[in-house]
Design a protein around this nucleic acid. Sequence first.
DNA 1: AATCTATTTGGCTAAATGACCAAATAGATG
DNA 2: CATCTATTTGGTCATTTAGCCAAATAGATT
Lengths: 105, 105
Amino acid sequence: MPATKDTITRRAAVIKALAHPSRLLIAEALMDGELCVCDLKDLVGADMSTVSKHLTLMRESGVLVCEKRGLNIYYRLVCDCLGDFLRCVDKLARKPVKTKTKACC
Amino acid sequence: MPATKDTITRRAAVIKALAHPSRLLIAEALMDGELCVCDLKDLVGADMSTVSKHLTLMRESGVLVCEKRGLNIYYRLVCDCLGDFLRCVDKLARKPVKTKTKACC
DNA sequence: AATCTATTTGGCTAAATGACCAAATAGATG
DNA sequence: CATCTATTTGGTCATTTAGCCAAATAGATT
């Protein structure tokens, strides 16, 4: 079953939800459990509205869900399979890049 | 050991290398083994120069390596741990998004 | 060495992204 | 019900990204 163009695009959107330093930071923090927006704002260190937009993107891509309790909104990761991936990414990110500017050959 | 800002940025770059429909398509195709640029051009269906730039991005982020043999340059995935991740992404991408425009609460 | 072929690079433009500020909303509290 | 607090939304601007075309490169073939 070859993935349709639409399927690929939706998968890419999920990945894109993690493909930004602030959003990755958020995802990694949420691996230890849910946090409210204000916590995440402190973590990221950006304007609250900026953080909120990152969270909206992540939520709409299906990576996060949220729940309001009291005055706060708590976000958490949908999927715990992210852990393995982040370990994989970390392994890749450690490697020095072989060729900075030129193609390998 | 809390990850430094620089580390997070490099991890995000690795993820970003997969966070585009064409690049994801390339990565998935390469899970079955190496392919030359011309194959990938056919797969993606874009201008050769566009594909080449995607490949450069992926290579520089550490996700791909390449090797020239004969006239062609063959690209392959550096890490096979991507397979599990892509399965995870697929699972997330399948879920209907709970709330399209409004926050959950 | 002249030419072919595959790929990359440079330049350009349109579109998407990310940041901030200000204003709106929604629910809790007095 | 008036207000406070947490969060989202809308607007704007600068930056980045993705696409194509044309030109450069590098290695194979004649």
